[in-house]
């Protein structure tokens, strides 16, 4: 029996199969029609279809043999100037044979590149524009140096709306003959936000238990995959234990790779449910929004979120008075 991760099994192959992100898909389809594409930056939180969109674009441009015109690189595995200088250049300068006169280089996690490497990349992009188009993928476009940003068409990916995610998950469940209840979907959305990759992985891990996927099953699975949880962290901070709250934050970010934007979204959800005076909720929402914006600008997730935790400690102390 062949078995694989459902994320790959159900990854859209063509632009028309893409889940949501309609405006982006439309623009990309117009590139396909024109048989031409500019350099692009796909920015947005994890699991929103950035890599998939790049692969689909290549597929639609070149057809089935698209792999031959495409190179996928990962800046966080091979970052540094050396990577740009050697791998990228060798690929970029060779001319493509076929109907489309250029190749596509997908550079994933480009926001992890050092700025020196980005400078080198900028020159390469310029030099080989004719033979190669770059698609840079990043969580935060703010971490890409400005000269590169200005050479690229920007695409901003956003979290999927709840209905789209549910529809996608239900399709998988039906195909895999897994029972998923309403409360199971609620739970998945609650813990994964609109991160579709995480949602599909959660569904698959939950289904592996061999029981219907209920909220309890989802929480137990996610609890095992992701022991720290945002609500607990917020509670700890409000209780006045900053150090412990910060440790929980670190565990989420450093160990389990939870995206800062994801944590922010959940904190925002918590704020209005907190047992604090109403004025405080507004004040905290302001602080959350400020951090959200700073992350988009390219600030450090852990440092910024710690500052937010300090605010929660302060709110907790005020309530006690």
């Amino acid at each position: 029996m062949s078995f694989e991760m459902w994320v790959e099994k159900y990854r859209p192959k063509t632009l028309t199969e893409m889940v949501d992100q309609k405006e982006i898909v439309e623009r990309l389809e117009s590139f396909v029609k024109a048989r031409n594409t500019p350099h692009c930056i796909f920015a947005g939180p994890p699991g929103t279809g950035k890599t998939t969109a790049a692969l689909c674009l290549a597929h639609d441009l070149y057809g089935e043999g698209y792999r031959e015109h495409l190179m996928e690189l990962n800046a966080s595995d091979e970052r540094g100037i050396k990577m740009v200088r050697e791998t990228v250049k060798t690929f970029a300068r060779a001319r493509s044979i076929g109907e489309v006169p250029f190749k596509i280089l997908i550079l994933d996690e480009a926001d992890n590149m050092t700025s020196d490497a980005q400078q080198a990349l900028r020159r390469t992009m310029e030099r080989y524009t004719e033979t190669c188009r770059f698609i840079l993928i990043a969580n935060y476009s703010g971490k890409i140096i400005e000269p590169i940003q200005s050479r690229c068409a920007p695409f901003r990916f956003t979290y999927l709306p709840r209905e789209e995610q549910d529809r996608f998950l239900l399709r998988i469940a039906k195909n895999e003959k897994v029972q998923v209840g309403r409360d199971g979907l609620d739970a998945i959305f609650e813990v994964c936000g609109g991160d579709l990759r995480r949602a599909v992985n959660s569904l698959q891990a939950a289904a592996s238990l061999g029981k219907p996927v209920t909220a309890d099953v989802v929480y137990s699975v996610v609890g095992r995959a992701n022991p720290a949880d945002v609500r607990e962290m917020v509670k700890t901070a409000l209780g006045g234990d900053f150090s412990k709250a910060r440790d929980m934050l670190r565990e989420m970010i450093l160990k389990y790779g939870v995206a800062g934007s994801d944590i922010i979204q959940q904190i925002h959800g918590e704020v209005f449910r907190l047992d604090v005076p109403e004025q405080w909720k507004v004040r905290l929402a302001d602080a959350v929004g400020e951090v959200d914006f700073r992350l988009v600008e390219g600030a450090d997730e852990e440092v910024q979120l710690s500052a937010l935790l300090a605010r929660l400690v302060e709110a907790g102390a005020k309530i006690k008075e």
């Binding site: 991760m5 790959e8 990962n74």
Partner: peptide
């Protein structure tokens, strides 16, 4: 990474924990 279009780094953080759950609950999968 070879299978899932993502960096090894991110794979360890984002995919490995779920694979682990499957490894511990469903030997066949």
């Amino acid at each position: 990474k070879r299978r899932m279009h993502m960096s090894a780094n991110r794979a360890v953080k984002e995919v490995l924990p779920y694979v682990r759950v499957i490894f511990q609950s469903n030997p066949e999968w």
